[in-house]
């Protein structure tokens, strides 16, 4: 088998049906780009789930009175609440956050938005007892036990917000995959069509190959490679698209969110770790499509 000869045939085949080739490559690229986007969302969600649920706290916000007058949790109301929380089963640790500390944290989170900082005053923020649970599922019993107690303003669970956030992100991911799938179907049909067209424009070649005793494998190889080249070029374009998407869109629009460490930053490393997946998927799916097309529609 002579590689130069086979690749020459592949190049001729791709050039001869330029418009179809371009359509096939672009559709493949969009499909794989969406797949890659979906995979990146999955990675982000996984990473967020890991470090969020570790950091998740149940927060017992304290009344305005304590917030204003008890910066060290020394008053009996505050100290009692703290003691009771500490002795509740399932509670790992309890940390008091004074109004000043809350304000300092606020300043740190929003340091990128000075206009917000100018508006904010410490008086707007309540002091709180931050409770780390061994098992986040214990939240309802804690909320029930402490809501309405003297000195308690309200009890919140960050976990609830998180579940909502993750529901939204999972929805985003599923939607991306569905669109990727539909787009993939279009890509498959285009690949299949291009191969049929290519086989048709090359029917004399294929006929000569058959009759001179070229093996089935040798006869099919140029067509399969055409498909694989389209798959791989599509994957490379998809990766380039993801990089551009990161720089031009994600990094700008989500800058504040990254800054506040709400969502982990999307790095180039993330994109390059999904890149091989996209290339392999592109090549394998294109090759399979090509193989089946040749089997079903083209006599070789």
């Amino acid at each position: 088998m002579r590689a130069s000869f086979v690749f020459g045939e592949v190049a001729t085949g791709l050039r001869r049906n330029v418009t179809m080739t371009v359509a096939m490559i672009l559709t493949t690229a969009i499909s794989l780009g969406l797949l890659g986007g979906g995979l990146l969302v999955v990675r982000t969600i996984d990473r967020m789930e890991q470090d969020y649920y570790q950091r998740v706290e149940t927060v017992v916000y304290l009344s305005a009175d304590i917030s204003a007058n008890d910066p060290n949790c020394t008053s009996s109301t505050c100290a009692t609440l703290r003691g009771q929380l500490e002795s509740t089963p399932g509670v790992q640790s309890v940390i008091f956050e004074s109004r000043q500390a809350a304000f300092a944290r606020f300043q740190r989170i929003f340091q990128g938005q000075p206009e917000l900082l100018q508006l904010a005053r410490p008086e707007a923020l309540p002091a709180s007892l931050r409770v780390q649970l061994a098992d986040p599922a214990r939240f309802p019993s804690i909320a029930k036990a402490f809501t309405g107690r003297p000195g308690v303003d309200r009890v919140t669970d960050q976990g609830e917000y998180l579940r909502q956030l993750f529901r939204a992100l999972n929805g985003l991911r599923n939607a991306t995959f569905v669109v990727a799938l539909i787009q993939a179907l279009a890509a498959l049909l285009l690949i299949s069509n291009t191969i049929q067209l290519s086989a048709f424009t090359r029917r004399t070649e294929v006929g000569v190959m058959r009759l001179t005793g070229a093996s089935r494998w040798y006869t099919q190889l140029p067509f399969l490679l055409e498909a694989v080249v389209a798959g791989v070029v599509g994957a490379v374009l998809a990766i380039v698209g993801l990089v551009i998407g990161k720089v031009a869109f994600v990094d700008r629009v989500l800058a504040g969110v990254f800054e506040a460490a709400i969502v982990p930053r999307l790095g180039y490393a993330d994109i390059f770790s999904v890149a091989p997946i996209l290339i392999v998927v592109g090549a394998v799916v294109a090759a399979l499509t090509g193989y089946l097309t040749l089997r079903l529609y083209v006599r070789i």
Binding site: M1, R2, F5, E205, V208, M209, T212, G213, A214, S215, Y218, T219
Partner: peptide
Amino acid sequence: AFALEVIG
């Protein structure tokens, strides 16, 4: 040459 190339 094609006839020979395709049979390797």
